[in-house]
Design a protein around this nucleic acid. Structure first.
Lengths: 256, 256
DNA sequence: AACTTGTAGATATTTTTATATCCATATGAT
DNA sequence: ATCATATGGATATAAAAATATCTACAAGTT
C-alpha cells in the first residue's frame, strides 16, 4: 500500500541543528505536529473524541438568555432564533447557538429554538426549577439590596433568614425576611436545614463567619466580601468582586 | 543547501482520498500544520512576533493583587514573591507571575516583586493613580451601598453626585454625597464635567437614562441593571450581572 | 569555595473559549 | 412545483488564557 502525503509547510518553522564543530556541514530540521483532521473522512475517527463539560462562560451567559426567553414567552412566542437572541443580548449568534446546544435546548430546523423547552432546559441545568433555601449574613446596605431583590425567586433562590450583629438591625424585617442576631446562626441554620449562605459582611469578619458556616455544614457560600475564603474542598465558594468590574471598565476606558 | 526534515506524525491523521472510480488504486494524504517552533534557534524568528495586549482576566485579577500588596506595604515589606501572593489570593503562582510581568511590575531576581513598584505599576495601568469623578443614578439600596463604599477612592473613583426621582430621596446626603433630582442631571453633568456614570436604576428606566447620558457626553457607564444597553461605539459600558455569579454557583453546586 | 534552593524570565504546550465554514433542511416566495 | 433563504447541526479553525518547562541568577548553606 502506498501512502501519498500532501504536505504544506510554513518555511519559517525550519530550525538549524546545533553544529558541534565548525567544519560540519549545516543541517536543518523542523518539528511537525498534527492538530487537525480532514472533515469526516478520517480513517481513525473517534480515537480522540472526548466529551466536554459546559464552560463557565456559557453558564454565566445563561441568565441573559433566560431573561429574553421569559419576555418572549410572556408574549406567546413559541420559537426564537439565535439571531433574535443576539440582538437582545449583544452576544454573537454563534455563541448563543453553541451555548443553547450545550444545555440541550430543543429546536426546530430553520425556525429557531423552542421558547418553552429552552427555558426548561436552562432552568433544569442550573437547578432553578425548584427553590433552594438560602440565608444572608450582614444586613447592611448591600445585604438589604439583595434581600429586597425579588428576582431571586425566579433564580431558584429563596432567602429565608438574615443575620446581623448591629442592635438596630436585629429584629427588623426587610422585604418580609427576619433579621436574627448572628449568635443565633447555628441554631437557625440547623433548624431550617439551610445550605446556601450569602455573605455581605465586612472583610474583617468574613473568614471567622465562614469557619462557623463550614462547621454548620453549609455547602455553598456566595461571597461579596473582597477576600478569598479558606474552605474545605467540598464547599463551593462563589466570589463576587466589585473591583474586578471597575478595573475592567478603567482598562477599557484607558484603551480608548 | 540541503534541508533535512525530521518528521514525526500521528498515523490517525491519514485520510483516504475520495476515489472517483472503483478501479483507481487508493491514495491517502494528510494535512500538516505548523503550530510550534523549536525554542530559540528558529531561522525566521520574529516573523510571527505580535505584541499582545493584557487580557481581560488579568485585568480583573489585578485588584486582588493590589489588596495584598497594600497590606504588605503597610507592614513595611519591600518584596513579595508570586508564591506568597498565590497563598493569599488562591490564584496559581504562574498566573500571578505572568500577570505582573504583563503590567511591567519591577522585580528582583530570586527575591520577588518590589512591593512599592508593583503597586505603582498596577495603579498606573488601571489609571487608579489619579481620581476620576463619577456620579450615580438610582439611590436605592444598591446605590446607597455603592455610595457608602469608601474604598472607591483607592480605586481612582470619586463619586461626586447622585440622582434619583423619589421625592424622599432627593435632597438627602448619603456618605456626604448629595442626591439631586434626575431632572437636574444634564446641568450637573455639564457643570461638573462628569464622564463616568454608575447606573443602579430599575431595568425599565435604564435605556432611557442611558440615552440621556450619551447625549450629555458621558463616556463610561457602569451598569448594574440586568439589561444590555444600546450605546454608540465610543461609549464604554461595563455590565455587572448578579445573576451570572449565582448561575455559576448553582452550576458548581450541581456538579458536586 | 562549592553546592543547594527559590525565584523571575522566557518560552512552549495545553486547555478553554470564541468564531468561522459548510451542509441539510424547513419555510416562504415566486 | 421550484427556488432562494435563514436556520440549526456539525465540524474546523483561531484566539485567548492557563499551565508547564527550562534557564539564569542571586542568596543562603555547607
Amino acid at each position: 500500500m502506498i501512502l501519498v502525503f500532501k504536505i504544506s509547510v510554513n518555511i519559517s518553522s525550519i530550525k538549524e541543528v546545533r553544529t558541534l564543530t565548525k567544519n560540519t556541514p549545516k543541517e536543518y530540521y523542523m518539528d511537525i505536529k498534527i492538530s487537525s483532521f480532514p472533515r469526516g473522512e478520517n480513517l481513525f475517527m473517534g480515537l480522540f473524541s472526548k466529551k466536554k463539560g459546559i464552560s463557565v462562560q456559557t453558564v454565566r451567559r445563561l441568565p441573559q438568555y433566560l431573561r429574553v426567553l421569559y419576555d418572549r414567552h410572556a408574549y406567546g412566542r413559541l420559537l426564537v432564533s439565535s439571531t433574535e437572541l443576539a440582538e437582545e443580548t449583544q452576544v454573537p449568534p454563534i455563541v448563543i447557538k453553541k451555548d443553547l446546544q450545550a444545555v440541550g435546548a430543543p429546536s426546530k430546523m430553520r425556525a429557531g429554538f423552542k421558547v418553552k423547552g429552552t427555558i426548561a432546559a436552562i432552568e433544569t441545568f442550573l437547578g432553578w426549577d425548584n427553590l433552594n433555601k438560602a440565608f444572608l449574613i450582614g444586613a447592611g446596605h448591600l445585604g438589604a439590596a439583595l434581600l429586597g431583590f425579588s428576582g431571586f425567586k425566579n433564580h431558584g433562590l429563596e432567602i429565608v433568614a438574615a443575620f446581623d450583629t448591629h442592635p438596630e438591625r436585629v429584629g427588623n424585617e426587610i422585604n418580609g425576611i427576619h433579621v436574627y442576631h448572628t449568635a443565633q446562626m447555628k441554631s437557625v441554620i440547623e433548624e431550617k436545614k439551610l445550605q446556601i449562605a450569602i455573605l455581605t459582611v465586612p472583610v474583617a469578619a468574613a473568614q471567622g463567619i465562614t469557619d462557623t458556616l463550614v462547621a454548620c455544614g453549609v455547602k455553598a457560600i456566595w461571597n461579596f466580601a473582597p477576600v478569598k475564603l479558606n474552605v474545605p474542598p467540598d464547599v463551593a465558594v462563589q466570589q463576587e468582586d466589585i473591583a474586578s468590574g471597575l478595573a475592567e471598565l478603567c482598562a477599557r476606558l484607558k484603551a480608548k
